[in-house]
């Protein structure tokens, strides 16, 4: 390799570093530094009235995630926090599944409309974003509470009034489904919109009925959108705070509420930070398993 080429490559490298510097700085200042602070907080001794005692390191927070300290200072296995994590996971899985079940047909319907109608319908999908989430969640409180529209509506079908839907897991799922549905519809719609419908015609031509064409051609080709939508719904709903707070009452806690509780009333910052890191680990694990499951086949194709 000539020196000229070497010099050119060095210059290119310098340019690339320079161009990516703002993005790097952004990530550093707004992601890595706060995460570093949180990590530090999680391994410090908690202060008596919130805050932390700087310089006094302790893994107490991570220990207390699994164990409770008895009166005689022995550790007893404690599933309280694990149960909340488990419920959060379960509610998020149900929410994601529900969003997929409603979102995929919706996206398919949107993609099959002619362009004018499609734009109108897409606009309608995004309309809820125009109002503050808090206002919309309060509207759900009015709908779901005893004697509210849903409750009395179900009463017409022979259910006893005052079902107590509000402040239950069901209410939380309804709220999560409602607020995250557009995040499922839009990416799936994007991948379906790009789909070459002649491939679907080819499937029909080769003897596939509607169900088979959906299963063998449309869904596999929409997979990137489905994966993106699933991640966009699952991850934020796992850490969601406002919906379980308002629709779950105090009864149906999720991880987000637990973390808020530690930084707030419980004055236990290290535990809050530790819980946040466990949540982060969970999310990374979920993304990793998704990568292993869905990225690999695509990579094989280009091998």
């Amino acid at each position: 390799m000539s020196t000229l080429q070497q010099r050119q490559q060095a210059r290119q490298l310098r340019h690339r570093l320079l161009l990516s510097a703002p993005a790097m700085a952004m990530l550093g200042v707004f992601l890595l530094v706060p995460l570093g602070i949180m990590l530090l907080v999680s391994v410090l001794q908690g202060g008596d009235y919130g805050g932390v005692k700087w310089g006094e390191y302790s893994f107490e927070a991570y220990v207390s995630f699994f164990y409770e300290r008895d009166l005689d200072d022995s550790l007893v296995f404690n599933t309280d926090y694990l149960q909340i994590f488990q419920r959060s996971l379960w509610l998020s899985v149900l929410t994601t599944a529900g969003c997929l079940l409603i979102g995929f047909p919706t996206a398919l319907y949107l993609a099959l409309q002619d362009e004018k109608r499609r734009n109108l319908l897409l606009f309608l999908v995004t309309v809820p974003f125009w109002t503050n989430l808090l206002v919309r969640v309060y509207a759900w409180i009015l709908l779901l509470r005893n004697g509210g529209l849903v409750d009395s509506g179900l009463g017409l079908f022979g259910f006893d009034g005052s079902l107590g839907i509000l402040y239950s897991d069901a209410a939380v799922i309804v709220g999560l489904l409602y607020s995250f549905l557009p995040f499922m519809v839009l990416p799936i719609y994007t991948s379906l919109e790009k789909l070459d419908w002649r491939l679907v015609e080819a499937a029909f031509d080769l003897g596939a009925n509607r169900r088979k064409a959906l299963q063998r051609v449309i869904v596999p080709l929409a997979m990137p959108g489905i994966v993106a939508g699933t991640l966009l719904v699952f991850i934020p709903s796992l850490g969601n705070y406002i919906i379980p707070e308002l629709l779950g009452g105090g009864k149906s806690l999720m991880i987000g509420n637990l973390i808020q509780l530690q930084f707030g009333t419980a004055h236990n910052w290290p535990l809050g930070a530790a819980l946040a890191f466990v949540l982060l680990a969970l999310v990374l694990l979920a993304m990793l398993s998704y990568n292993l499951r869905f990225r690999q086949p695509a990579m094989e194709g280009h091998a």
Binding site: L199, A202, A203, F204, L206, V217
Partner: peptide, 20 residues
């Protein structure tokens, strides 16, 4: 009859091979 019930097959102009 819908296309999948006809004993007829097509070679499409764009070939329409399934990319996946």
């Amino acid at each position: 009859l819908p296309p999948f019930r006809r004993p007829v097959n097509t070679v499409f102009q764009s070939y329409a091979l399934f990319p996946h």
